[in-house]
């Protein structure tokens, strides 16, 4: 009987020891160096895990800050006090804000863009989009059922005439709307009061014209008149580079469909 106990115990013990040693070696060899600043930063964060900074929680925000990818003014809960503490720990000047705002790249209100289907009873953009692509005749257009409105924690989005519109002065760049839009047409742009091509359609010009009066047909007139070469036409969609744009407004004058609009800060 003792023989059995000893045999089984030694087999189990021996294997356990071997595996334990293997794991110890592996954990040393494949060690991931964690920056200790992350722990320091995490300690001063409020810990509410609300996601208003745009990250998935305070842990993720701490990592993002240390990596230098997030602004220290990004936390509305911590505010000014937090920003100054963070500037101490990270050595970054407070007030270096990357004040981005979200914008819906579509201008298809009911009178401009044709409607294909009537989703009676379905009040969710994601649901409508997964069932035959949504009510809009344009496959890339705003669904207009309000998923982004519900996602925004700062009430910065309104639906007018079937089109979502972001009140850019209220936007805190949390990017929740960007994540929830099923058509992926909400983009982050550097600042408000800008000229933008408000269309995301990758369809050919004739198709766009059939579905919507204000869509971009890719004619390229805007690109030709732009004095700072800020407009590029990729395929059949024009895009304005906000870094190069000087807000002169020449593009909006020549656009045949009215796809270029100026987005003021207060809607």
């Amino acid at each position: 009987m003792f023989g059995e106990i000893i045999t089984s115990a030694s087999i189990l013990g021996g294997l356990g020891l071997a595996f334990g040693l293997g794991l110890a070696i592996a954990s040393k060899k494949f060690e991931v160096k964690v920056d200790e600043r992350i722990a320091l930063v995490r300690e001063v964060l409020p810990g509410a895990n609300c996601g208003a900074c745009g990250q998935t929680g305070c842990d993720a925000y701490a990592e993002c800050l240390v990596e230098g990818k997030c602004s220290i003014n990004g936390c509305p809960v911590g505010g000014e006090e937090l920003a100054s503490k963070l500037s101490e720990i990270l050595g970054v000047k407070a007030g270096v804000t990357v004040a981005k705002t979200a914008r819906v790249m579509c201008a298809g209100i009911y009178s401009s863009c044709k409607v294909k289907f009537d989703y009676s009873g379905l009040e969710d953009c994601l649901a409508a989009s997964s069932l035959h692509g949504g009510p809009s005749a344009c496959a890339y257009g705003c669904v207009g059922l309000g998923s982004c409105v519900r996602a925004c924690p700062f009430d910065a989005i309104v639906i007018i005439d079937g089109l979502a519109r972001i009140i850019e002065s209220k936007c805190k760049s949390c990017e929740k709307c960007v994540a929830v839009c099923p058509k992926k047409i909400i983009e982050m742009v550097p600042r408000c009061d800008e000229y933008t091509v408000s269309c995301s359609s990758m369809d050919k010009g004739a198709v766009v014209r059939k579905n919507c009066n204000v869509g971009c047909i890719g004619c390229g007139k805007c690109s030709k008149v732009c004095p700072s070469e800020a407009i590029m036409v990729k395929g059949t969609l024009a895009k304005i580079d906000p870094e190069k744009c000087t807000n002169c407004g020449e593009c909006m004058k020549v656009c045949p469909t009215g796809a270029i609009n100026r987005y003021r800060c207060d809607y």
């Binding site: 045999t7 089984s8 087999i11 189990l12 294997l15 356990g16 595996f19 334990g20 293997g22 794991l23 592996a26 954990s27 494949f30 060690e31 991931v32």
Partner: peptide, 26 residues
């Protein structure tokens, strides 16, 4: 010794998963 297979297998699997975790993290 056949009766030991359950617990030995559990030991092997546990160590393997730990190993996979270390590899993934890296």
């Amino acid at each position: 010794l056949r009766y030991l297979k359950t617990i030995v297998f559990i030991l092997v699997i546990a160590s393997l998963v730990q190993f996979v975790e270390i590899i993934l993290k890296k």
